[in-house]
Write a protein that binds this DNA or RNA. Sequence first.
DNA 1: TTCCAGGGGTAGA
DNA 2: TCTACCCATGGA
Length: 306
Amino acid sequence: MITTIFDVPTPADFSFAATVHSHGWRELPPFHYDDNRHILSVPQRLRSGTTVLRLSSPDDQELIAQVESEAPLGSGDEETLRRVVRTCFRLDQDLGEFRGFIDDISGYDWVARHRLGRLLVSPTAWEDLAKTLATTNMTWSGTISMCRRLVSLGEPFAGGFCFPTPQEIAAVDPVRLAEVTKLGYRAAYLHEMATKIASGDLDVEAWREGDLPTDELYRKITALKGFGSYAAGSMLGLMGRYERLAIDSIVRRVFRDQMNGGREATDKDITAHYGRFASWAGLVMWLDVMRASLVPYLETRKPQRP
DNA sequence: TTCCAGGGGTAGA
DNA sequence: TCTACCCATGGA
């Protein structure tokens, strides 16, 4: 096994811990997070074979990537891997406007203090869509289980599997897909999406990079079977757009218990509450939801960049 | 068995 | 657009 190490510069407001723990994605295969060594592993297919990126950042000033591969990296491979790192940690996202916005709102000083706001995403939009579909109508442990089974249909490598490509999922019989993955009724939806992507009828990767208006993007996502307001709002957030709220059972519970005196609130109430955050509403809502678990965790970790 | 999940879909107003 | 209601499926 050959080991290659390189580092990727990070923005001044970057926090590795805050991003890795921004939501549950680190727990969904083929991501793997080592909680003791603070290393996120991401398998990646290259022309020269499959590699595993082991990503860490002791001081938040750069991301350190350790790559293990069976053959030396081919030309362009390192650049491909750097792109994957920048994508997953959304390093190219400029959160400056958000920092200025939230700094002016009282009661949110903890956001800047812990450099919160970056969300961990998958290497491809396809993978994020598949995982988001696996969160619908399902417990979190069930989502993890479905992702583990889904990944078993991807290309194997020493130590695990890559996330299956749309082509690989499209090639599986839908009935067998449901049996293997336990995706249930979602299997047909995933198969249909994979087939459209594989045939070129649907270009979901362009959604991330494109400059489509958010409302139009929302319509495109909700046009996919199985994607309603929650799933589409969630996907928009993973693409750096926060106008739409992804209201799920966690949001409702936390809002009720921590922000509404224990009284049940309707989705309309929640939406109205976050209205003042305008284009940052979805991000602020999610940070509020995460605050109780995330902030204490981050405070127990050694102080990093002062 | 029942109940719920990081809900979706749709008819009717 | 909003609401009420029904529907799906796995796991605890």
